[in-house]
Each structure stands twice: as structure tokens, then as C-alpha cells.
Amino acid sequence: MPARMCINPIHNKKGILHGSGNSISEETEERWADSSCAMDSLYDLDLISDTVPVILDNSEMWHHVLATSMKLGSRGVAHVEGVSKSDLKEKSSYSNILLINRTASPLSWFAECKDRKNHSSILLPYSFLPSMAAEKLRYAAEEIKKLLGDYDAMHVRRGDVLKTRKDRFGVERSKHPHLDRDTRAEFILCRIAKWVPPGRTLFIASNERTPGYFSPLAVRYKLAYSSNYSSILDPLIENNYELFMVERLILMGAKTFIKTMKEDDNDLSLSDDSKKNTKKWEIPVYTRDGEKC
């Protein structure tokens, strides 16, 4: 694993990977330090190592592996993007290689042990890494869950996924045409009524920044947010990514967990739009088209 996690959009600008010259400038190193955090501040590496041994890319072990692989030449390193797991196991050309690079892209800065296109192909469950959060983050989540008691939860992703663009006729289009509608409070109330009974405590994790955006849900539910637990979080949380990991643990502990969009067929979701629609841009829909709640 990388020793540090990028928590800044710079990871998409290739500033670190493709800097000018043969060395990274001091200014770039400072930017990297300011916009990244240590991996062990996010994950419990010892806990992960109980299942899958972890080697950080700044460790002596990693440097030893790299140095040895370079000396071995063709028997040292193999890049296996696109190679099937059966070939890796069965073909003799891979059996004696010291280091196998499985990374699909140098900019794939956070891929959670899964094939996003085929969930059945994973060796570890999707819940593995989220449950391996650093000890302080697991502690914070457990303390908040105790205070919540018996609760339901939903993750409402808006912001970045609501992006639209105009086609050649000037018409606004979106990859998720119903998502803006489906994640508005009045539509959420209608959608979750069959899953969450009135009076329940509902924990909401969201990137929506509008104050009071979810307040209309209070007519039916007791609303809770991570901001309600600042006395627990403020002494421990150093960046938004740590907060996200705590919220994710809380979401996983809910009696009923509702996602923004489905990842698996059995998921409960606010929207029926495809999460991984990468090609089709459609005209956004903001009404229910005559359907009743």
C-alpha cells in the first residue's frame, strides 16, 4: 500500500506523477505533505495484515523487494493489467516472479480490493477495507453508534454527481438524470417510507452543503448527523476523509441502510439511476410524472 493517501484533487492533475525535471521540487513535496495523510491514520494496518500482509511503499521491506526485483530482470517484475486470475495462478511465466504489479492506473489512488464491474470476482468482501479503519476511527464510530441506539441510516451523495453539461443544442444533460430529484427531501420522504417507519432515528451522511437541506424529513424522523457529535469527533478527526470513514462505519451499523444509488441488486437506494453510467448523458427529470407517493 502507499504510505500516504492523497486527500486533495491534485491526484487527478498528475502534478506529483508527472512533475517537470528528474526530481520533485521542494515546493511540490510540501504540497504533497499538506494534501495527503499517512495511510495508518486511516487504516489499521496490523488488523489488515491478519488477513492480507501489508507492506508500505516507504518501508525497508518494500525497498528490498524493489532492489531485488531489479537485479532479477525479467524474473523480477511483471505488469499484469488485464491478465486473468486463472492465468496468474496457472501459467508458469508468472510463478517465479518476485513482484507482480496489478495496478490498473497510476492515478487509481483508492480501489478497495474489488472489481467495480464484477463484484462476484473479488477475493475479499467489499466490507473488508471499510471495517479495517484505524483504531481511533473505529472508536469514534462505536461511541456515536452507542448514542444513536437503534437507528437507520442513509448516504445521500449530491454535489459532484449532479454535474450537467450542455449538448450542441444548448440543452442541459446529466449522467444521472433523476438523481437531483430523487435526493431532494420531499422525494426522499416518499421513497423511504416503505423502509423506515415514522419516529425512527435516521442518521444522514451527505456531501450536500446547503444548511437545513434535510430538515423537512424531521416531520417523520429524528434526524442525526455527524456534526451532532463534535465532542467525540473534533479531538480525533483531522481531515474529511477520516470523517467519511467514521460515517461509513456508522452507516454499516444501521438496522436499515439506504444508499444513494444501488451497487448490488439487493441494495436499498434513493435513486434507480445507474451508479456507473459513464457514457449516456440524458435530460434531467425533476417531476414524478404523475406518480403518487
Rank of each mutant, 00 (worst) to 15 (best):
Y126K: 10
I7K: 03
G73M: 11
S23L: 08
V80R: 02
S121A: 15
F110S: 09
G199N: 07
K114R: 10
V196M: 06
T164L: 07
A3F: 11
K145Y: 03
E208P: 01
A104D: 15
S231H: 08
E29A: 04
P106T: 01
S20W: 12
P177S: 03
Y126N: 12
L129Y: 06
N266G: 11
E60M: 14
R168V: 05
M132P: 00
R102A: 12
L179F: 08
R102W: 11
W32E: 02
F187A: 07
E30M: 12
I10W: 07
V83G: 06
N22K: 02
V196D: 07
Y151Q: 01
N240T: 09
S226K: 08
L202G: 00
H64Y: 12
L147S: 09
V246E: 02
T278F: 10
I192V: 14
V285E: 14
V161W: 10
D57C: 03
Y221G: 00
L233F: 02
L270P: 00
Y139Q: 09
G149P: 05
C190D: 09
A153F: 06
R75G: 12
V161E: 07
D87L: 15
R184E: 13
D150E: 12
D87F: 12
R184F: 13
I100S: 03
L179D: 03
R220S: 06
V161N: 04
S92M: 11
E186Y: 13
E208D: 09
F257N: 07
I7Y: 05
G253K: 02
Y94I: 02
L47M: 14
C37N: 08
S127T: 11
R288S: 14
N277E: 13
